[in-house]
Design a protein around this nucleic acid. Structure first.
Lengths: 337, 337
DNA sequence: ATTATACTCCAAAACGTTTTGGAAGTCAAG
DNA sequence: CTTGACTTCCAAAACGTTTTGGAGTATAAT
């Protein structure tokens, strides 16, 4: 059986209270007693019973994270990276991480209600914010602590971190225009995702600023998978007047585009420029290496987790809205280097 | 404030016990009373306090999963997929999932001790078993329920699921030999990983069976990243007598090899055959599509999670050792189709 | 010698459940 | 009218902590 405060108390010949206070570092226990207690605890291999602590303190020291998956064979490396960030930061603060994996929809909403209602976690992390995001409405309504990765179109005040996707796509587009490209296609993200709009806006803004037409036939949408990138890339390349450059809303789709181009015998970087977004590790070692808009995914994971924990502990006034600058990382897939 | 059994009891005019029993579905509460209680619970939005339940029942209904990461920018899609499997299966059984992310080493061991000692989880999932795996020794020693993905070289009896890597690599190698390849290189995994040995053994077995020499210069090792695949691939291709085929211990490295080959102007599938292992979704849509040894990662995640939950509930006699057959998926990267 | 001040300690309550071991009440059978 | 068997209910203990509000004792100040 696991050893409890009671066991230590009995062995040292002292009350449970005193053991608790000695271990808790309070100064109302004599130095000698404290030593005997610490020693006994060590010898007996005492570990506090987290569940009991949580119940009593009304604090679980746990953050929740519901990963919005897309089907069973879901394997976006993006999520591993952000999860690593979140997990490592949580560990640093001695917080645990409760994870759920649910595809967006009713079951996902239920998962949120479960986590909030059952009081298993002190706060939640929301990623990939959506238009009229019900998760956010719900959490704000419940007054439940959370931090989001991504802004919202709801008129609600909540803490978030985001990357300026408009700027990122503007820069990427401008870079291609500067290289002389006139027909630049864009594979956008599902329109219910907030970032889809920001990035699309950046693309359009750059075109317009340079007096280039925004052509509907060059704008398409994919579900952020490599497969969709491949499919949409193929479509674009078989257009009567195919684009000379393709930007994808994320790296995975950009990699799909590269496959599509290579299958057609095009040399990516020479015959066709390709740019992605995210800068997942895969991007650096693709062939050719992918030009992409870098966002510090791991750091963002750490950051939102840190902010949430601050919020929970209501420590120092948290910076509630963090906007990060993306950076265009130029590699070979865009040519011109 | 959250509503408790006490609140319902007061409102319905009945004891806490009765409320608990009504909600728990016991048959010692009158039908009328039960209805009034259920109704009140619904109206008041009652949600059981999981922590309190756990404390009382001495069961957390939570499984733990410590992801062995490799550095901050860790983003192996393999882990997202297995996590999705685990998470979805857990949800089906109304179990929660507590995740930690730790690089192998002292901190990882501590994470295990924390999870076990603090009694926050009812069982653990161990993946990527290692030689003389301390995690396994520890868990067996503690008598703590767990299920592993991967066998062990320890003389211990524990439940696991594994894929026959020897067979997988044997088949892959044989396939290349049948295509006429004589110089087949192999990029192995870090030797502390159990699967590294099984796969390597399969490679050697096939060579020997066919009377081909096992050449040290054609066997190398990478840390399972695309980067290492690229590096080792480059090295192999600049050998005086370069191989005509390269097998990598996982898909990510195989993708790195493809990059290395293409950079040298080799047409993968024609000038060089490449085969991976895992069959991550990325493999299907690379260019050219990657021939690889398929293992059902998502299903394995579900399976080990299901087995663990059975173990915890000590339901039906669990099948303790599951060995899955891998299947060679032939795509273009290996040529010959 | 009294009072004040530290210093150590602890009993008991509380967190929200589940479970045990009856206590009432009702009803049919003897 | 008793007895026994059901049915329906509940008080209290327990799970392992933390925290509150003192109690007791020794020491210092008056």
């Amino acid at each position: 059986m696991a050893v409890t405060l009671k066991d230590i108390a009995r062995r040292v010949g002292v009350s449970i209270t005193t053991v608790s206070r000695a271990l808790g570092g309070y100064d109302d226990v004599a130095e000698g007693t404290r030593q005997r207690i610490l020693q006994a605890a060590r010898e007996m291999g005492y570990r506090p019973h987290t569940i009991a602590q949580s119940l009593r303190r009304q604090r679980t020291n746990t953050v929740g994270f519901i990963i919005p998956t897309a089907g069973p064979r879901f394997s976006d490396p993006y999520f591993t990276e952000i999860l690593t960030g979140i997990g490592n930061e949580a560990a640093e603060h001695e917080f645990d991480l409760l994870v759920s994996t649910r595809a967006p929809g009713a079951q996902e909403q239920e998962a949120y209600e479960r986590m909030v209602g059952s009081r298993r976690v002190d706060g939640l992390l929301v990623i990939r914010t959506r238009c009229r995001d019900e998760r956010i409405t719900y959490l704000v309504e419940q007054g439940f602590p959370f931090v989001a990765f991504g802004r919202s179109d709801l008129d609600l005040d909540f803490p978030y971190v985001d990357v300026d996707g408009t700027k990122g796509l503007d820069e990427a587009t401008q870079y291609l225009i500067d290289l002389g490209h006139q027909r630049i296609a864009y594979i956008s993200a599902p329109p219910n995702l907030m970032f889809a709009h920001y990035r699309l806006a950046g693309y359009k803004r750059a075109l317009e600023r340079n007096g280039l037409p925004v052509q509907e036939e060059l704008i398409t949408t994919g579900r952020l998978t490599q497969e969709d990138g491949y499919r949409e890339g193929s479509r674009l390349l078989t257009l009567e007047h195919p684009p000379t450059a393709i930007i994808a809303a994320n790296d995975l789709m950009a990699l799909g585009v590269i496959s599509a181009a290579q299958e057609r015998g095009l040399a990516v970087g020479r015959d066709l420029a390709v740019i992605g977004f995210d800068d997942i590790p895969l991007a650096e070692h693709s062939h050719p290496p992918l030009t992409t808009v870098h966002q510090p995914i791991y750091e963002i994971g750490k950051m939102i987790c840190r902010m949430l924990i601050q919020l929970i502990k209501n420590e120092e006034p948290v910076q509630r809205r963090v906007m990060l600058e993306p950076a265009l990382v130029i590699r070979e897939s865009s040519g011109g280097c």
